[in-house]
């Protein structure tokens, strides 16, 4: 029984040789440059490694240290969860709406608006503009306006005060989420055949929202799933915005995330074993959410 199954598997694999030939270039490079570094890093998570001496195997010590003794870890964990659970869905919904709206606009205006909305992702360092807006003194634009309108009487230290800083960074992250996921969904809209809309109109679709909900979104489920994964990865991996706007470390670690904590271990303390262990924890966390997302999309993606 087992033997026949093995033979049939081998037979199947032999019959699919063309598929494997097509996969070969990508997956060869992928195993060398992505899978191998990730696996080595995961192994390093179980060692003590300072980048000078040979890694020393320490079992689960790193994980125990992080979960039991490291106070900053739990602050970073909490911040990351709040951050991801707010910016992930909000950024995603905003992204879908913007892509949908832009798709309703025709001609050169469409391309220009797409460019402007995508520009922050293209520039990479666009969040410096927020530094000017949220400057902690009276010269910051936000403080200036709020004081002129008598809403507040003295400037708020937006990026230094632990009560505000995470909120400000979340706002920036939502704004910056119009990246490749946004472009993919927008391009996805273009793949929907016009005849579907004509048929839907005959079947009683009355306005563009019904059209979006009943016709477009189900048809572009693969792109929606792609964008959801990009959003997931983006909202859990945030660190550059935090470091650049709130400082490193931020006041009372109020803007610390798991990844800023990884960077702290890897690039400042040179404890690569600990950094890798943290990366593994973050990976597991995202994996769980990935399973949830896959469930939501599973019937629609055709996988």
């Amino acid at each position: 029984m087992v033997k026949t199954r093995k033979v049939s598997l081998l037979h199947q694999m032999k019959r699919s040789w063309v598929s494997y030939v097509m996969l070969a270039p990508f997956f060869t490079l992928f195993f060398i440059f992505t899978v191998l570094p990730i696996l080595s890093s995961a192994v390093l998570g179980f060692t003590s490694f300072n980048m000078l001496e040979t890694p020393r195997f320490v079992g689960f010590n790193n994980f125990r240290h992080l979960l039991v003794n490291d106070d900053v870890f739990w602050i970073a964990f909490r911040n990351t969860m709040i951050f991801a659970l707010v910016t992930g869905p909000l950024g995603y919904v905003l992204m879908v709406f913007l892509a949908w709206f832009i798709n309703e606009i025709k001609g050169i205006l469409r391309t220009i608006l797409t460019l402007l909305i995508y520009a922050p992702s293209m520039m990479g360092t666009a969040f410096f503009i927020w530094f000017i807006l949220f400057s902690p003194d009276a010269h910051g634009y936000i403080n200036g306006f709020l004081m002129r309108w008598n809403i507040i009487h003295e400037p708020i230290e937006w990026l230094l005060h632990p009560d505000y800083v995470l909120g400000v960074i979340m706002l920036v992250q939502i704004w910056i989420s119009m990246g490749v996921g946004f472009l993919a969904v927008l391009a996805g809209f273009k793949t929907v055949d016009r005849t579907y809309y004509e048929a839907a109109a005959l079947d009683g679709v009355r306005n563009r929202f019904q059209e979006l909900w009943h016709v477009t979104l189900p048809l572009i489920a693969p792109q929606m799933f792609f964008a959801a994964i990009m959003q997931l990865a983006g909202s859990f991996a945030v660190w550059e915005i935090s470091v650049n706007l709130a400082g490193f470390p931020s006041t009372e670690y109020a803007a610390s995330t798991i990844v800023t904590h990884i960077v702290d271990y890897a690039q400042i303390r040179y404890e690569l074993g600990m950094a890798s262990a943290l990366a593994v924890i973050l990976f597991i966390l995202m994996l769980v959410i990935n399973v949830g997302l896959r469930r939501m999309f599973i019937n629609k993606v055709g996988n």
Binding site: L9, Q12, M13, S16, S19, Y20, L23, F27, F30, F33, T34, V35, L36, P37, I38, S40, S41, L44, M51, I229, M230, L232, A233, F236, A237, W239, V259, I262, V263, A266, L272, A275, S276, L278, A279, L282, F283, M286, L287, N290, N303
Partner: peptide, 26 residues
């Protein structure tokens, strides 16, 4: 073909691992 679903998921998994710790192995 055999392994299709596994490879598809592997691609997504790779996107979820933090690149900040990969410099030394790379």
């Amino acid at each position: 073909f055999p392994g299709r679903i596994a490879l598809n998921q592997l691609v997504v998994f790779a996107l979820l691992f933090s690149t900040t710790v990969l410099m030394v192995p790379s």
